[in-house]
Each structure stands twice: as structure tokens, then as C-alpha cells.
Write a protein that binds this DNA or RNA. Structure first.
Lengths: 246, 246
DNA sequence: CCCTAAGGATTGTTCAACAATTCTTCAATA
DNA sequence: TATTGAAGAATTGTTGAACAATCCTTAGGG
């Protein structure tokens, strides 16, 4: 995208410049948003530690020590914690502090209730089925297969998430994407609390492939139906495992 | 629900007590959550002012003055603002402060994208269709009709929101309910920015009634289809009005 | 008319403190 | 022994003041 545009008409001679400047300003603003504030960085670190399973469900997060560990003040930390509470990753118990959320069976069921409503609908009726997004679904499938072939189960789990995010992305909605991001973070909490078996995700690789194929062939409703039954099965399996282990 | 249970077996004699005590503790905790902290109260006040249209899109919220007005410290206020930013009601521009979100056409379209995916699905495939919830949908219809009969257009708008919340509630998902709550708050921002005509919602009263009837008759798919076309129409009307006025 | 620099205003962040509440300990008591 | 109660410690909720960093405004200088 030509950032320089010297061949502008000299008559009024400022419209193009303004356009370029606005572009530059927007870019800088976006950049800055990435670096963002200390509070955001702190939130990202804590979020990551929880999602990666290094902070397990139920652990309390004392403000003073945590702030010291993160190198921020207690006030700044509290801003970060507010964010994570809003994301359902942490829970605030008034006057008792924040703890890593400990999901119950009802939470597992509710997350799947949402997923079963949203994901098949995105496949069947999504208004954002661009070739690129359809390709992204297929890409997640091959990513998963390759990971499975080399026995990298963490990568398989990752690819599985990518698959479901790609499915939701077919709706073409930033808001749904954000919501799905939160749901998948919660899912990782489930897995950690129930002691996820290493190969938990493997059986679903082929299901993902089937769905991607149906989607590629233009059979949206078929893909949606398949995903619905698949999600139902996954839910019952997950709830059963959850009841045993947690 | 018998809160006292003196006829418990004396043999081990503590299980029931524990149950009751847990119940009491949970109740107290819920109570406390309602009173909640200063930050939450501040957030609620600002949220209300925005949703009610007293703080219009684009207005900046200087921390010092706002904190003074709310009677809280600047740090506490910042916690509250973090919440509202997470809810998309406010937008934070780094080093420039928070402003009331100014939705664009893309936002209107995206909100409707989500609604058209979720609401019909809740009608057609929702797993929470209890008689009480179905009745709530019908109740929202009569609420709207009565409000319309006496020309109270604010109440009509309110009833319309209740209708759509009741529809989503048919999914039986707390998470979807919360999400819908946010979306409807955003919708009110749209209306305020485009200068909502007083009688905007009236035409949809009869559509709501039709959908409630279909639902009551057990024709879920019919109700869902009807709602889908209705939402599409509402979207185009809204986008057109939005383009003109905003 | 455009550019630049100084000055003012606002945000991002820290620190130190204090009241309110919860948790802990530990002795006294039935 | 198990329960109660109260003093004391620890943590949260909240405040106020401060300071650097950044943004905005405005007044000159080219």
C-alpha cells in the first residue's frame, strides 16, 4: 500500500496527506495497543499461567505477593484482576480475594450448551463463509493430523482449538470470535482440573476431518449435523471424566 | 423448603446441619455480592448513565472529575472503568482516557449477525424450553401490547428487550444470557446515537406476538424462521436509519 | 500558512496508609 | 474432648498524594 503519494494535485494539496497521516496515526495507535499498559501485561501473564495449568483451580492469588512477583503495584494488579474476573477465569470472593475459578459440572454443561448452539449454526447459517475461512478449517485439520502423527498431544489439543475457532470464524463475527476465545480458555480450565489424559483429543481428529470435508463439498447442513452429534458425545464423555476425576 | 430439620438421625448427626449451614453461607455470600464493592457500584452508576442515554457516545470521562462526582477515589474509579471497557460500553484510548463507545455501522451489523445466529437457534434447538420460560416470552408480548396501548413508547422498547431476552433464555444457558445482556446494552447505544424515533419498536409488537404464538403451538422451527426474517428486516432498517442520522 | 517549542492537562503508575473484614491461634469452659 | 470466644495477625477495600509519560493547546518563528 503506497505510503508515499507525491503525485497529488497541487491545487488543494492536503487531502491525500491527511489520508496518509490518519493511516499512520491509526497504525501507531494499534501498535501502542499491543504494548498496552502494565495492567494489561499483568493480566496477560496471569491469564497465561492459569490457562497453561501452572496456576490450578482454587489457588488463591494474594495481591501483595502477586503484585511483587509481577513487578507492578497492587493497584495496577487489581485492575488486571478485574479484567480476568470479567473473563470468568478468576472469581472474586468479597474480602477474601480472587481465586482461580473452579468449574463444576454445571459449567461444563453450560459451555457445551453454548457451543452446540453456536458452532453448528456457524457452519449451517454463518454469513462469513469466505474461501480463506473455509481453508482455515481444513488447515486446522491437517495441523492436527500432523501433530497426531508425531505423537505431540499438546499440539493436537492446540490444533483442536484452532479447528473450533475456525468453525466459529465462519460466522464472520468479531464478537462471536471473542466469546469463543473466552469459552476455549474456560475449556482449558476444565481439562486441567480433571487431569486431562494426554490423548483425549485424538479421537476427534477424524471427526474434524469429516466435517471439514463436508464443508469443503458445500454440504453445510451435513457438516453442522455432524458437529452437533460430535459435540454431544464429547460433552457426555467430558462430564463423565469430570465427575470421576474432579 | 424446610430450613429447619430437627428430625435428623442422631447417629452421626451432622450431615444435614452441614447442608443447612452451607445454604446459609451461600445466601450470605450472594447477599454480599449484591451490596458489593464501591467499584462495582460506581460501574453500575456509569453503566446506567450511558445506557439511559445521559452520557452520549463519544463523551470523554475525565477520571478526576468523574471520581469526585461518584464520591470514590481515582484508583477505585479506574477499576470500575476497566469493567465497563470489558463490557464494550466504554472504550479506552491509551493515554487519552476512556470515552463512551461510538458504534459504527459495522458494529450494528455484527450485533445483528450474532443475534441472528443465536436467537433463532435458541428457539429451534434450545435445550431449556421449560413452560415457565415459554410463558415468559408470552408475558413479554402482552407487556409490550399494553405499553403500546397506552402510548408509552419507552415501555414498549423495554418490553421488546424483555422479549428477546426471554427468547435467548430458552437456551437455558447462563453464559448466553449474560452475553445477550451485553448485546442489548450495546443496542441501546445504537438507538441513542441515531436518535431513536419514539415509535421505532411498535411495528415489531405484532411480529413478537406471532412468534410467541408459533412457539406456544410447539412450532419451534416456524418461530425460528419467522424471527430470522424479522431480525434481518430490523437490521436493514436500523442500518439505514443509522447511516442517515449518525 | 505550516512548523515548532513551551506549557498545561490528563493518564499511567507507584507508594504508603488505614478501616473493614476474614483467618488463625489459643486458652477457657462445659 | 470438643466447643466457644476473644485477641492478634493477615488480607482486602479504599483513599490521597505524588511523579513520569504522554497528549493537547497555544503562541511564536520561519
Amino acid at each position: 500500500m503506497g505510503t508515499t503519494d507525491p503525485a497529488s494535485p497541487m491545487g488543494r494539496g492536503h487531502t491525500d496527506l491527511d489520508v496518509v497521516l490518519d493511516e499512520v496515526l491509526a497504525a501507531r495507535r494499534a501498535e501502542r495497543t499491543v504494548m498496552s499498559t502494565s495492567a494489561d501485561r499483568a493480566a496477560r501473564v496471569v491469564r497465561e499461567q492459569v490457562v497453561e495449568g501452572h496456576l490450578r483451580s482454587g489457588t488463591r492469588l494474594p495481591e501483595e505477593r502477586l503484585a511483587a512477583a509481577l513487578g507492578v503495584s497492587r493497584n495496577t494488579l487489581r485492575e488486571a484482576l478485574s479484567q480476568l474476573v470479567a473473563e470468568r477465569i478468576l472469581v472474586r470472593e468479597p474480602h477474601r480475594g480472587v481465586v482461580v475459578a473452579t468449574p463444576e459440572v454445571a459449567d461444563v454443561e453450560d459451555v457445551y450448551r453454548v457451543r452446540r448452539l453456536v458452532e453448528p449454526a456457524a457452519l449451517a447459517h454463518g454469513t462469513g463463509h469466505t474461501p480463506a475461512r473455509v481453508a482455515a478449517v481444513a488447515a486446522a485439520v491437517t495441523e492436527g493430523r500432523e501433530a497426531g502423527a508425531r505423537g505431540d498431544w499438546d499440539a493436537v489439543a492446540s490444533a483442536n482449538q484452532h479447528f473450533h475457532r475456525a468453525v466459529v470464524a465462519l460466522a464472520g463475527s468479531p464478537r462471536l470470535d471473542a466469546q469463543m476465545h473466552l469459552l476455549l480458555a474456560e475449556m482449558r480450565l476444565f481439562f486441567h482440573q480433571m487431569g486431562e489424559p494426554r490423548r483425549f483429543h485424538q479421537p476427534y481428529l477424524e471427526e474434524n476431518a469429516t466435517i471439514a470435508d463436508l464443508l469443503g463439498a458445500g454440504d453445510r447442513q451435513g457438516a453442522a449435523d455432524r458437529l452437533d452429534t460430535y459435540l454431544t458425545a464429547a460433552q457426555t464423555q467430558l462430564v463423565a471424566a469430570f465427575r470421576d476425576r474432579a
